[in-house]
């Protein structure tokens, strides 16, 4: 069972965990990842950011990533939420929650989904801070993280 949501509204991590666990007796493992807005990036103070995306392609991309995760591991529920629009420092941007009968599958799938999302889902961050507005640059390290899943 997949739940994928691209939204402007904040989400509550507790509610998402509750949705992963409700009437779910077969999966003993849940792995969660939450990404939040940092106050510093590339040595510059950040006060907030605006997240742009490509409506239509974003949802397709996220669905494909989750489907691919399911072909690699035995997963129960997957919840993937990503916010777009304006966000302040400390607000949560992205939530990935995965359940499985086994912790290895839950950990790995959670990381896999984030690694793929970082390099292929069409989102872009515009940070506001002490030096004005700056488009965030992609990181080579995110590309390298992806290589461990190439098999």
């Amino acid at each position: 069972m997949d739940f994928i949501d691209v939204r402007t509204a904040p989400f509550a991590v507790g509610d998402e965990y509750a949705a992963l666990r409700a009437n779910n007796r077969s999966d003993g493992a849940s792995a969660l990842f939450v990404g939040s807005v940092r106050d510093f990036n590339a040595g510059v103070g950040v006060s907030g950011l605006a997240l742009e995306h490509y409506p239509g392609m974003t949802e397709k991309s996220l669905q494909r990533i989750v489907s691919d995760a399911r072909t690699r591991w035995e997963l129960g529920r997957v919840r993937l939420l990503h916010r777009v629009g304006a966000m302040a420092v400390e607000e949560d941007i992205v939530f990935v929650g995965v359940t499985s009968p086994h912790r290895q599958a839950a950990f790995a799938a959670c990381q896999y989904i984030m690694d793929r999302l970082k390099t292929e889902a069409p989102f872009w961050k515009l940070e506001s801070g002490e030096t004005g507005d700056t488009w965030v640059a992609a990181r080579d390290s995110d590309r390298r993280e992806l290589e461990k899943w190439a098999r």
């Binding site: 990404g35 392609m57 989102f123 961050k125």
Partner: peptide, 26 residues
């Protein structure tokens, strides 16, 4: 049409094409 394309991918009438910098979500 909302799928990553190569330089050689063919485009025909009615298609939607997008150009963008490397993604930075998450």
């Amino acid at each position: 049409n909302q799928e990553i394309a190569a330089a050689t991918t063919r485009i025909t009438d009615g298609d939607e094409v997008a150009f963008f910098p490397p993604v930075t979500g998450g």
